Amino acid sequence: MELFAVPNLPEVRPGDDVGALLRDRADLRNDDVVCVASTVVSKAEGRSVDLASFPAGPRARELADTLAEHAAGDPDPRFVQAVLEESVEVLMETPFLLTETRFGHVGVNAGIDRSNVPEGDVLLLPERPGDSAARIRESLPADRVVVTDTCGRPFRHGQRGVAIGWDGLQPSRDWRGETDRDGRELGVTVENVVDELAAAANLVAGEGDGGTPAVVVRGFEWGDHAGSDEHFREIGTDYVRQAIRGWSYA
């Protein structure tokens, strides 16, 4: 398997066809996996916005005051309002906002970005990243597309690439029912393939002003394994989320 960045992508503007931009700059094969950073997807979909679009309500001002007591800096209540409007649940209120987005991703500040936003104050995540991946795939000879983002992970330091949308493949490879080297049947192993592809792509894409927003994974083979549509954990089996709901910051 090999990975390479798509070169010479221009600054993406609202209305741009991301798939066409990629197709014109990479010699793609039908079995490639194209990993695209959510930043360029959001820019093409007009998700760069000014904070003036989010006048702060009472709840946002209350949360901003609480954050100011426990976090560095002075949070803008309008930014907090944007986080609330992009979320279906606030899991943690301090020392930072940990929320669930409308499409099921759990992350800090609903994944809203303040970096690399030339046409607004903030950049929101795509509204429906799975649909975004499907639209990009329509413009490509490649059969599989993953929309990626970066975020932290419990019990680990630093950020890594994750998948927030995909099309043309199932998110997870299901090993249950297969056997290990000693012939024992696997009972719980479900491998999150789209997250692994996103993390591998992020190693090639890089970060900051030297980063590239699209990476092609060539030679990845699913193999003779069942697939699973599971990706975002269901609340009933998400024991970490249940614990966080009962936790308070001290």
Rank of each mutant, 00 (worst) to 15 (best):
121 D>V: 11
121 D>E: 08
121 D>A: 08
121 D>Q: 10
122 V>P: 03
122 V>F: 10
122 V>G: 06
123 L>W: 03
123 L>F: 04
123 L>H: 05
124 L>F: 10
125 L>M: 15
125 L>I: 10
125 L>N: 05
126 P>K: 07
126 P>Y: 11
126 P>V: 07
127 E>Q: 14
127 E>D: 15
128 R>A: 13
128 R>K: 13
131 D>W: 03
131 D>F: 03
131 D>K: 03
132 S>L: 06
132 S>Q: 01
132 S>M: 10
132 S>T: 06
132 S>E: 03
133 A>D: 09
133 A>C: 13
134 A>V: 00
134 A>M: 06
134 A>R: 14
134 A>D: 14
134 A>H: 04
135 R>P: 01
135 R>I: 02
135 R>K: 14
135 R>E: 15
136 I>L: 00
137 R>D: 02
137 R>F: 02
137 R>C: 01
137 R>E: 06
137 R>Q: 12
137 R>S: 02
138 E>L: 06
138 E>S: 12
138 E>C: 00
138 E>M: 04
139 S>Y: 00
139 S>G: 05
139 S>F: 00
139 S>E: 04
139 S>D: 08
140 L>S: 10
140 L>N: 09
140 L>Q: 04
140 L>M: 05
141 P>G: 13
142 A>N: 02
143 D>N: 02
143 D>M: 00
143 D>G: 15
143 D>C: 05
143 D>E: 15
143 D>P: 00
144 R>W: 06
145 V>M: 02
145 V>D: 09
145 V>N: 08
145 V>T: 03
146 V>E: 05
146 V>C: 09
147 V>Y: 06
148 T>P: 00
149 D>W: 02
149 D>H: 14
149 D>M: 08
150 T>L: 10
150 T>P: 00
151 C>T: 15
152 G>T: 11
152 G>K: 07
152 G>L: 08
153 R>Q: 14
154 P>A: 10
